[in-house]
Design a protein around this nucleic acid. Structure first.
Lengths: 331, 331
DNA sequence: CTGAAAGCGCTTACAG
DNA sequence: CTGAAAGCGCTTACAG
């Protein structure tokens, strides 16, 4: 038993396919009685328009791709920012009657597949999520002519509009907060430097320290908890006297807290810790984490909504969201 | 400049559309020289087959829907299990050359949309992720005739095959571990009881306590950290003497740990805590969390692979994955 | 306001 | 092995 077609509905209702199509698509130029009889036939047969046929003729798909850079196979990140962004964007897209195609762009070959996929006309537009700077995908996608936007500023400027946190401002506030407390040896755990967010947060750290007579103490992480724990160990080796750490995201701050605990350092008495992002987990660390966040209510939803607006408008105006420090107990 | 079509490639290569189609689809019955000349035309024109046209004629879409039950708007969960599952499944699907359509099924109207969406033939199959028992969606989807599988056992039996942890066994091990330590007053924080995972874990808790002379002490949570924190507060009120808690997932255990810390109870000396899932964060609590996990390497990937195999095979055999307890410091 | 016709861009029997 | 033709299920000018 195959699904009924437009044709079957027309036959059942005794009208032309054109009329059925008009009713289905809610066009106003249809006589009420025709609409009635068509609707009756539609429900009677359980008719649902075939998506592929519709896409083919309208040259639109009503679907937007969310393209997430995926870490190499094996490694499975549970960064909550990923879930928040995908979830918020999906919700908004569906509210707008659009479908979402989730595409992971990790390996080389998957990247080629993404390109083909977009070229095949499967989607009307795409939103990139936190691509790293070395990824060639943004440039490729920008060249397809499809509307694209980026969640997070890209290394290569001008490729597409983006929405991002004020990473410079936020990191500055974090370090300034540590300075205001009179901390003397302030270290930082940086994110991976091929990501602009990590670059900006590190830059702000350095700039803010400049002129205070303090030297930079830097360890490199990759935005995961474990990397934060390891970086903290290294920092402790490098400078056992350090009395503050600014971690470039909360996950690494959580890792750093564990290392400090294992090393017998009290937080914040011996070492103050500040993170970045204000993820949910920051409320549950011991002690609760002082961190930086974008202040407009639900951060992820706000950001993704702006992004989707950019996508819809075809606007080229990027936006930077302000940040604020959230002082809890760790610093 | 619109994208080139099959027709254009055929014209360029001086062959029929049939031949071009055959080459594109890798059919063996094509003369080598024809293949050559067609491939040349394809690359020259940058031809990529139109997806909608292909879907229409083949009646297949090569895309699988991942349907996630979404909490009501406003509430944004950052449960890492969500991210892990979606990510693992996406990766495997893409490796198999399939596209993934992410659909959030939260509200009533979104549910209607999901139904329409599947009925419109947009996907070849669907994987449901942790539906709660009151959700009518599984029954509806099962009736569409589309291949569907469920990540997690459904309340209504027989609707579709599923893959799930051995929740009964895992929870039994957790509670038994507490008994083995000689804990006398063992409480539990249950998940939402419209989910089978929560039901099973609570059942196992009760059964394991039965006959040990201990009474059940139960508080209800909803698998979020905050609910775990609140449930723990209530348990402490109900029975200030309790010396152990089994939280039905790690997130709630994390919440419970915070409450215990605030109440000045030492873990595990005063109160032992065991969670369930073994999420990454369980390694970073203070103290590190004793919990239950599925033992086969990367849990999410293993589970989703089984699920996708079921989907591909059209098999009706559900599978239950064994669990083991991971003893760390909290109990 | 309604219907007949063309066409979206492919694949697939069917002849040859 | 190759090509002409039909057809997948819709939408959309175009007449009327």
């Amino acid at each position: 038993m195959r699904r009924p077609t437009l044709h079957a509905v027309a036959a059942r209702a005794g009208v032309s396919k054109s009329s059925v199509s008009r009713v289905i698509n809610g066009e106003p130029t249809v006589a009420p009685e025709i609409r009635q009889i068509v609707m009756a036939a539609v429900t009677e047969l359980g008719y649902v328009p075939n998506g592929a046929a519709r896409n083919l003729v309208t040259q639109r798909t009503n679907t937007i791709a969310i393209i997430v850079s995926d870490p190499p196979a094996g490694l499975v990140s549970d960064d909550p920012m990923f879930a928040m962004v995908v979830r918020a964007a999906s919700r908004q897209l569906e509210a707008a009657g659009k479908q979402v195609s989730l595409v992971l762009a990790g390996s080389e070959e998957s990247r080629a597949r993404v390109e083909q996929y977009l070229a095949a006309g499967h989607v009307d537009g795409a939103m990139l999520v936190s691509m790293d700077g070395s990824d060639p995908l943004p440039a490729v996608l920008a060249r397809t002519g499809l509307p694209v936007v980026s969640h997070g500023r890209l290394s290569a400027p001008g490729l597409m509009p983006y929405v991002d946190n004020d990473n410079l401002g936020g990191a500055t506030k974090a370090v300034q907060h540590l300075l205001d407390q009179g901390r003397q040896r302030i270290a930082t755990i940086s994110g991976p430097l091929d990501m602009t967010a990590a670059q900006d947060r590190l830059t702000a750290y350095r700039e803010t320290l400049k002129g205070t007579g303090r030297r930079s103490i830097v360890a490199l992480g990759d935005f995961t908890r474990i990397s934060g724990a390891e970086a903290m160990r290294q920092l402790l080796d490098d400078d056992p006297q350090l009395d503050a750490v600014f971690a470039a995201n909360d996950l690494m701050a959580i890792g750093a807290l564990r290392t400090l605990r294992e090393a017998g350092r009290r937080v914040p008495e011996d070492v103050a810790v500040v993170g970045f992002d204000d993820i949910e987990a920051a409320l549950y660390t011991a002690p609760p984490l002082t961190t930086v966040r974008s202040p407009m209510g639900d951060q992820a939803a706000r950001t993704t909504q702006l992004l989707l607006d950019l996508l819809a408008n075809g606007s080229a105006e990027s936006v930077i969201l302000p940040t604020e420090i959230v002082v809890r107990e760790s610093a």
